[in-house]
Each structure stands twice: as C-alpha cells, then as structure tokens.
Write a protein that binds this DNA or RNA. Structure first.
Length: 430
RNA sequence: GGAGAGUUGGCUGAGUGGUCGAAAGCGCACCCCUGCUAAGGGUGUAAGCCUUUACGGGCUUCGAGGGUUCGAAUCCCUCACUCUCCGCCA
C-alpha cells in the first residue's frame, strides 16, 4: 500500500503507474472523497466522544444515553467508509523506479548484461527431462499417479545435487568474507553483514498473506478454508512478516535472512505450458533471501542481492543474463525487479532462475514494520526479497549445460566436494 | 483432544466499574553532583489519528472483535495466541 498523502499529491504519477502496470483502474476522485469523508466522520466521532466523556464525568445518565445512540450510528458509517477506502488503497500498485522500462509484457523486459559462453556441443543437446529419465533421476510418471500433474520424484544423484546446491549457497550467505568479495566485485559500498538462516512456517494466515500484498491472485494459492490458512508460494511470504507490527531500531539495520522451504504454486492458467520435467512444478524447494534496510540503502541492497545471484551463477559456470522487468510484467508491490535467466541449451532459451524484488515501503506500510530513526522519527522499513537458488530450475540449468553425449551429466566443480563425484551417470547393471 | 492459568507501555509488573494512558522497578534521554570510574540526586520517557505557526488541545488504543453501562484495563460473550498438567505424537 502507498501513502495516501503521496497518492493525493502525485495523482498523475499514480494514474500512470496503474496504466503502466496494467493494474485494475482505481477512481482517484472517489478515493480522495472517501479519504475526506473518513476524516470528517472521525472528527465528528471525536467530538461526540468528547461530549460523552464529559457526560460520564458528570454522571449525566440521560445525556450519556443519548450520545451513545448517536455514536453507534456514526461508527457504522465510519466503518463502511473505512472498508471501502482500504479496498481501493490496496489496489493501487507500487510506483516503479525511474529506470524501470515501460512496457506491456515480458517481451519488453530489457537485458542489461550477459555472462558466460554458451556451451557448444558436438551433438544435439537434450532437454533436462529426457536426461533425467535416461539417468533415472527424475520420475514424473509415478508422481503423477501419486500426486498428479506437475509433481515429480527427484532421485539419487539429482537429490544429492540439490543437497549440494543447498550447502554451497548456505556457505556463501553466511560468510562475511565471501559477501565482502561479492560487494567489491559489484562495486558496492554496502554493509556486508551475513544472512541469518531461518526455517520458517510454510503455512500462514490468509489475512497476513493479504498484508504482504501476495494473496492475489488467490487462484494461484493453495488455501485451507477450514483453518483459514494458505500455503506459501515462496519463503518470502513468511519471512516478510517476521517483523510485522514492530519498530526496528535504525542501528539494527540491515537485517538479512535466508530461508530454505518448499514453494507451492497452483499454476492456475498455465495449463499446457512447461509440462515436461521440473521447470514448472506445484512444489519446488528454494533458498530465498529477505532483507530489511533503510530507505537510503534499498537500491544498493537490491544490487547487492543481484550480485549474490550472479556470483552463484558464475561459480556454477552457468551462462546467464540479467533482465530488468518492465512495468507490465512486474509485481504489484514492486518498485524495481530484476530476473536472472540461465541459458538452457536443451531448450535453446534463457529461462528465469532468479528474481529480485525491491518493494521499498509498500509491503512494510501494511505490515506495520517501521524504522525508528536515531532522532525518534518513524517510517516504513524498505524490504527486498530475492531468490538465492530455486532448486528445480537450477538443477535443470546444470543438467542441460553440463550434459555429455552419452546422456550423463558432469557435476559443476564447486559442487563436487559435496557430492563426492564429478559425474552423474546411469548406473551400470550388474 | 481434556483440565486450568494467562495476554497491560522498550522490558518486568501493579491495577476487579469512575478521579487510570495506567503504580513501582528496570532500561533509555537530559541535567546536577563526584578529579576519572563506581555509586547517588533530579527531570523526562507509548503509539496512531485530528487540530495548532508554535505552546497546546481533542479522540482512539491495556491480545482482537462484539456486548452490558451515563462510564470498562476491570463485568459478559466469541475468537486468536501463550503457559502448566494430562492424553496423543515425529
């Protein structure tokens, strides 16, 4: 949610934002009218309350009785106006950063840099699902019988490869020397405080998901009506509210977390898209970063997180490109969004493996997570969230880039020590 | 799932119908005293909204919501959460 005062003072910017982000139209005149009406009703209610309090002090029974009736009416009106006001407020998207390209959909995202050499194979590169089937490390058929479409069993060495990725990434995020190296490489002068590892809940109250501005579209979420709970689509969803209704001392920032959880996605509306293998699953594991920073640090914080993502890709030697997401393709809550897309030789395409969302104070305003400045002033904290490693897609990119002609897959050098081998091969039958 | 006890300011914790946004202590801030340190004394110290150039004033908030009452932290109802014991369980 934006600040109402900002909205009223910057109506053109807000109108443009709604249009550019393809948001649902919001009648700003109506919003302003509701805001003023709410203010007026509150003032009237305050006055009545004052009179009632006086009457109570004087033990004026008759007067008090009369005033109570009037107040009840007024509070009903106030609630109606308040509800409608908030309903409109939460529809208004975050204003994008000046460097965000204006565009209608993902075709207008802009590649800002590329890294790595695409591997040249002397054979036709296979897609990961074919490699996985051949090596008997991905089983989608049994998973379909047990759980349905878009579920898989990852088996044997592929499961080990995931554990290796986990260890590799955790070591980066918890090591300040590595983080310092990353900041320096990216030319950033940021505090390199390490990330705190978290294992968060994967179910949460729908109301809190709503405060995170992540409930909609609700069709994308798995909802448990009986318990009023929803499954997270990302660890961000329960990391973000970790400080809701709190005041954070300025000197405690930045606060950096990462969490390892499954992410649950219904993939409503994506029928027929990426049906092969593990590119688009109802459930996949992910290490997610979430940070809380001062407003003046939030842009460089996002650059830092992208720097971490790129460092991971470079260490894994997977060719990638960094893309800045245009207005029409970015999230409602985003101020600025970058994706990292890995080169997938089997598909001959770059595919998204990482994303990085800078929300500024948009989420914090509804979560009521504030910074207490040294001078006592309060303001919403700025929040950044970014993928450290999305296991499924990272496994795909490794399999496709490291494949051999015989269908085996080499293990990236940095992961070999965790896996205890340098190649994933089909077991030889004895 | 059963039985019971709780939820009050940054923290601990008192408060069972009015004079309570709330004692006391801790913490924090400023001042005084002390050569430094330690100890001591004084003053101040919740948030949100509205109003005011400012000083100030008003309203709301004692887990959340509803109710009783002229008046609710205090009484009643519903819900959430925490703790203890029992049961079950990884």
């Amino acid at each position: 949610m934006l600040d109402i005062k900002f909205i009223l003072e910057n109506r053109q910017i807000v109108e443009d934002t709604i249009k550019n982000k393809k948001g649902e139209p919001v009648d700003l005149d109506k919003l302003e009218a509701l805001y003023n009406e709410r203010k007026k009703l509150r003032q009237n209610a305050d006055e009545l309350n004052k009179k009632r309090n006086d009457a109570a002090l004087e033990r004026n029974v008759e007067e008090g009785k009369r005033l109570r009736m009037g107040l009840q009416e007024m509070e009903k009106d106030l609630e109606k106006v308040e509800t409608e006001f908030v309903r409109l407020m939460i529809k208004i998207p975050n204003v994008p950063s000046p460097d965000t390209p204006i565009g209608k959909d993902d075709s207008e995202n802009k590649v800002i840099r590329q890294w790595g050499e695409k591997p040249q194979f002397k054979f036709t590169a296979k897609e990961h699902d074919e490699l996985g089937k051949g090596l008997n490390i991905i089983d989608g058929e049994k998973a379909a019988e047990v759980s349905g479409a878009r579920f898989t069993y990852l088996k044997g060495d592929l499961a080990l490869l995931q554990f290796a990725l986990f260890n590799f990434v955790v070591e980066i995020l918890t090591n300040e020397d590595t983080l310092k190296e990353i900041a320096e490489e990216a030319g950033l002068n940021v505090n390199v405080k390490a990330f705190t590892p978290i294992i968060p809940p994967v179910m949460m109250k729908t109301a809190v998901m709503n405060r995170m501005a992540r409930l909609d579209p609700v069709d994308e979420r798995y909802v448990f009506d009986k318990d009023d709970l929803v499954l997270i689509g990302s660890a961000e969803h329960t990391l973000g509210p970790l400080h809701m209704d709190e005041k954070i001392d300025e000197k405690d920032l930045p606060i950096r977390y990462f969490a390892y959880t499954p992410a649950f996605r219904r993939e409503a509306g994506s029928y027929g898209k990426d049906t092969k293998g593990i590119i688009r699953q109802h459930q996949f594991d992910k290490i997610e970063m979430e940070t809380f920073v001062r407003p003046e640090d939030s842009l460089s914080e996002q650059d830092f997180m992208v720097g971490i993502q790129e460092y991971i890709m470079r260490k894994l030697k997977v060719p990638y490109q960094v893309v800045i997401i245009c207005t029409g393709d970015m999230g409602l809550a985003d101020y600025r969004q970058f994706d990292i897309e890995a080169w997938m030789p089997g598909q001959e395409k770059y595919r998204e493996t990482h994303t990085s969302d800078l929300m500024n104070g948009y989420q914090a305003r509804r979560l009521n997570t504030r910074i207490k400045r040294a001078d006592g002033k309060m303001e919403p904290v700025h929040m950044n969230d970014a993928t450290a490693v999305a296991m499924g897609r990272m496994l795909v990119s490794i399999m496709e880039n490291y494949q051999e002609e015989d269908g085996s897959v080499k293990v990236p050098e940095v992961l070999q020590k965790y896996l205890g081998k340098d190649k994933i091969e089909k077991p030889v039958k004895k």
